[in-house]
């Protein structure tokens, strides 16, 4: 009970901030934030995936740093930029986020939860050698695909 007013207040603040930003810049700020979030995943993945592929020599410290970033990113509170009203139905080509994300029966939130678990598992073993890291990376990739498969509009 004591948390409810806090949550309402947070949502109100975020919504107001969102509207304010939307009014002053081009593009939908929630979409831009989501895409920035994905870019940060991809940037850290490039280090880990490059090592898994054998294109970059495995380095435990670099792997741990990148995997730690993945884990941190996956646990950020993202609700404010996955707000309803920002799907392809409302924004057209500006986003590839399908309306299904927000519809009843959506599993996008669960996938996000599994993604966070997989990323933490990755961070836990990233320093234990290339094979351990590459194996855990597969678990992360599975969740990336799970969400992109059902909830992202195919390219073009």
């Amino acid at each position: 009970m004591s948390r409810l007013p806090m949550i309402i207040a947070s949502v109100a603040v975020v919504a107001t901030a969102g509207i304010a930003i939307a009014g002053s810049h081009g593009g939908n700020p929630a979409v831009k934030a989501r895409q920035a979030h994905m870019s940060l995943y991809a940037f850290n993945m490039a280090t880990l995936g490059g090592m898994a592929k054998g294109e970059i020599e495995y380095n435990a410290d670099a792997a741990k740093a990148a995997a730690g970033n993945m884990a941190a990113l996956s646990t950020l509170a993202q609700g404010a930029y996955w707000v309803p009203g920002t799907s392809t139905a409302e924004l057209g080509e500006e986003t590839r986020a399908l309306p299904k994300i927000w519809e009843a029966g959506s599993t996008a939130g669960e996938i996000g939860g599994r993604m966070a678990e997989a990323a933490q598992q990755l961070a836990a073993v990233a320093g234990d050698g290339k094979d351990a890291m590459a194996g855990a990376l597969g678990g992360v990739g599975k969740e990336c695909s799970a969400c992109h498969k059902g909830y992202r509009q195919p390219q073009e």
Binding site: G49, G138, C144, P154
Partner: peptide, 11 residues
């Protein structure tokens, strides 16, 4: 893994 060379993932 589903990861492209840019580390986007297959959908």
């Amino acid at each position: 893994s589903g990861f492209t060379p840019e580390f986007d993932s297959a959908g």
